[in-house]
């Protein structure tokens, strides 16, 4: 950390992302977005403070599998600050447990109208899948939110449900995942594959909340949020890098 402080480069581009704990190892595809994050790239190049907005349900705000202030968006913020020490980052987290995309939409539009967010994280689809709600209506809501973010000069990173055997076995995630995939084909929208990423960690045996012993659970939750945050930070930086070339 000290080293990176000493070696603050003039350009913020060349700085490599911070080393991740071994447990966070994952295939490079998870930190490689399929599209460019133009607005984030511009903001990084300008050197001005960058506001990041994270909207989501329980896991984003830290009510499920985390603590408020220690959920994965905050861990992403930590990682970004290490990766780009010359840039000032600020994070706003909105949403809450059991919230659908529809319930989040007014929070999101209000926020992007009030302040400039070059990067907006939108974690959704779990509640819709669990309740068996209509995927096409969820899509319409997400499109409205994406439009609002774009108009306000930001990029959207959609984040899909967390991996859970219980969720996979008892809800039909596919139609909702398909909506997120479709929207990620739009310019200025990318999808962070949290489900597959977390599944890869459970397959490797690194992080598996559903099978963690009670005594180990707290540590596992913390590690999960750190790893998600760090991968997400790499994902964002890579998305900005694509835009620059």
């Amino acid at each position: 950390m000290l080293l990176s402080l000493v070696a603050v480069p003039l350009s913020t581009r060349a700085q490599p992302p911070p080393p991740m704990p071994e447990a966070c190892d994952a295939s490079a595809e998870f930190s490689t977005p399929t599209g460019a994050l133009d607005h984030l790239a511009d903001a990084l190049a300008s050197g001005k403070p960058i506001n990041i907005l994270a909207v989501g349900s329980g896991t984003t705000v830290g009510e499920t599998n985390g603590l408020p202030g220690a959920s994965f968006p905050f861990r992403m913020l930590d990682a970004l600050r290490v990766a780009r020490p010359a840039v000032t980052f600020a994070l706003t987290v909105l949403g809450g447990r059991n919230m659908t995309a529809e319930a989040m939409l007014p929070l999101l539009t209000q926020a992007v109208h009030a302040q400039h967010y070059p990067l907006v994280l939108w974690q959704t689809a779990t509640v819709e899948a669990v309740r068996g709600m209509r995927p096409d209506l969820m899509q319409a809501v997400l499109e409205a939110g994406i439009d609002a973010v774009h108009e306000a000069g930001g990029d959207v990173v959609l984040i899909d449900p967390q991996f859970s055997r219980f969720l996979r076995a008892n809800a039909d995630l596919d139609p909702y995942e398909a909506v997120l995939e479709k929207l990620a084909a739009l310019p200025g929208v990318v999808l962070f594959h949290r489900f597959d990423l977390m599944r890869s960690w459970t397959t490797d045996g690194h992080i598996d909340l559903e099978r963690a012993r009670k005594a180990d659970r707290e540590a596992a939750v913390e590690l999960l949020n750190i790893c998600l945050g760090q991968t997400l930070a790499r994902f964002a930086i890579n998305g900005a890098a694509v835009a620059q070339h």
């Binding site: 499920t64 447990r97 059991n98 779990t126 669990v130 219980f166 559903e210």
Partner: peptide, 17 residues
């Protein structure tokens, strides 16, 4: 049964399943 078997506890509170 599945909820019981996995002892999901706090894991998924976003369920109305």
């Amino acid at each position: 049964w599945s909820a019981e078997a996995l002892d999901r506890g706090n894991y998924l509170e976003e369920t109305q399943l």
